[in-house]
Write a protein that binds this DNA or RNA. Sequence first.
DNA 1: TTGAAAGCGCTAACAA
DNA 2: TTGTTAGCGCTTTCAA
Lengths: 359, 359
Amino acid sequence: MSEERKGDIVRPTLADVAHEADVSAITVSRTIRQPHIVAEKSRRRVEAAIEKLGYIPDAAASALASRTSSMIGLLVPSLTNNVFTDVLRGVYEVVEGSRYFVQIANSRYSALKEETLVRAFLRQRPAGLIVAGFDQTDRGRDMLNGAACPVVQVLEHGPEPVDMAVGFHHAEAAALATRHLLDSGYRRPGFLAARMDPRTQRRMRGFERTCRDAGALDARRIVTTHQASTVGLGRQLLELLLCQAPETDAIFCANDDLAVGALMEAKRRRIRVPEDLGICGFNDLEMTRHMYPAITSVATPRFETGRQAATMLLEEIAEPGSVGRRNRDLGVELMVRESTMRPPGPQPAAETHAEGKAP
Amino acid sequence: MSEERKGDIVRPTLADVAHEADVSAITVSRTIRQPHIVAEKSRRRVEAAIEKLGYIPDAAASALASRTSSMIGLLVPSLTNNVFTDVLRGVYEVVEGSRYFVQIANSRYSALKEETLVRAFLRQRPAGLIVAGFDQTDRGRDMLNGAACPVVQVLEHGPEPVDMAVGFHHAEAAALATRHLLDSGYRRPGFLAARMDPRTQRRMRGFERTCRDAGALDARRIVTTHQASTVGLGRQLLELLLCQAPETDAIFCANDDLAVGALMEAKRRRIRVPEDLGICGFNDLEMTRHMYPAITSVATPRFETGRQAATMLLEEIAEPGSVGRRNRDLGVELMVRESTMRPPGPQPAAETHAEGKAP
DNA sequence: TTGAAAGCGCTAACAA
DNA sequence: TTGTTAGCGCTTTCAA
């Protein structure tokens, strides 16, 4: 079909369907939105006409007339990062059974882009909005505050959400992991992190605080980068860490990608995990438990966060003010696996690393 | 702020801004869309008024009046699968610099859901559409055919796209990998696959055909499942394969997730890779090259597919009929790595597997 | 360079 | 149960 043809296509309207079915426009409208209040006979005629003409309702006209759309906007900083796609799955599970649909926007970790995207969402008069995190720009927060729809902030827990929130404490989750390393007998823990978005920074604070309290904090053992987190980066960061702090006997990785990369690099260097080096990841992505050795990680409630956010939104849309707990902490769970199960008794000297590092 | 307040918020309209700036509505509209044709003085007054009132244009009214939106719809079967998020990244890279925005819909591998989502997109009068694959339902294809906007099908190459297409041959790509295994001296190759969506099935055909031609096809060595592909599933499928065909000396995994899982399971069983078992993945996800040993994989042009699809769309939107090659094959590349670099000379007997399998 | 008038296709409100 | 009327907030068209 040529492009000229395409341009010429005139879509049938409600009025066309009404004419075809010999009813009024509003009856067609009702047949589509509230079929139960239309007489069986009219309804069948309308349905036949819709089918015959291939009628597709115009969302813009509908949104304009009703001053609302069926869109639920989801604003995340990344879609490469499985953390957000897991939230998304939870949201879908709830929204799919409803008359709403999800629109996704990706701020790519830019607060400015996020602001633009919030504005783009609001232009469409969404029925509800789900936004990752608490760290909007001032204008972004103002816009969310003034939104004519319910808003849920996800994946963090903190004071004063814009409207509603579901998530967990990043600093506390990191502290849990760090304490586990210390309790397992590791004395010189290091920290690897990438991207350094607000949530990652909170995890770093949790690590630092816990280490400081235990007298085990050493800035040389903290290696971070603003690059996006990848498995390859985990290898590089471990290399860097072992260069500048060869005494390191455990690492807490702010991401499972990094943990997997670090584990692979350790294997390649013949560093024994967990004997010479304990490794703990964060998020408990599916792959970590299947590594060899299986990697200890902090399981974060990503799917459940998405489910609850969507549920809260739908309830609040149906009846404003009806949602009870509007700021929820879902907590995390430490999944202890082989990579930090240090055998009891004295450990080999730290020099082991130096050996491992030789080509 | 209470929900009641929210409901009461009256958004300023073009007319309000016009009143504030003491110009007509159309001048405000022009200031927003074509600032260069508005006099400097009016423009500044309008911009000040927009700022003062916090005006946000209504997308529905705009779409209704202009009979088009700025939306580019992207329809994929999954967002958990990194393949599609890579395409997405390519699309974003191109679209972000334009006046269009991307809306993502997830069919979750259901052709019926896909049909519903195509309809949902068309209701919004998209400026363009990008759809994964060629396997729409008949109605889905009809709708795409009748769409009043350009359409690009991605991630496959085949005859008769609806409008435009960018992708590669899955069967040929699989044949490339399979030939590599055979050429590397592996004689009893197996095949692991999950999900079994149309593209995966084409890869299976490519594997079967190549093995048959080489007299190396044995149905016992083909293990598939309809479950979603995961690393854990790779471990399970390898276990199954080695149970029913212990002589297997190499595997082609239809996904890198499976390949990583299979590698980890092999390590756990003390099966030597690549000596006893060659492993080849598909897609060349970032992690595969960082495994130990590094995994051979077929690199697919996911990012470039997204880039080109978006570029074609924007060109075609700007000037219908202007895009030249409308059906593009981007090809694939085999990345040979440690996991299939079998040392030359006679190999240990196949019984090695039996040993490896012992607890 | 600016504006007035006339809809875009639908739904809310009310009436029958 | 169905219909009539009057917009929703913007852009197009034509005129000044």
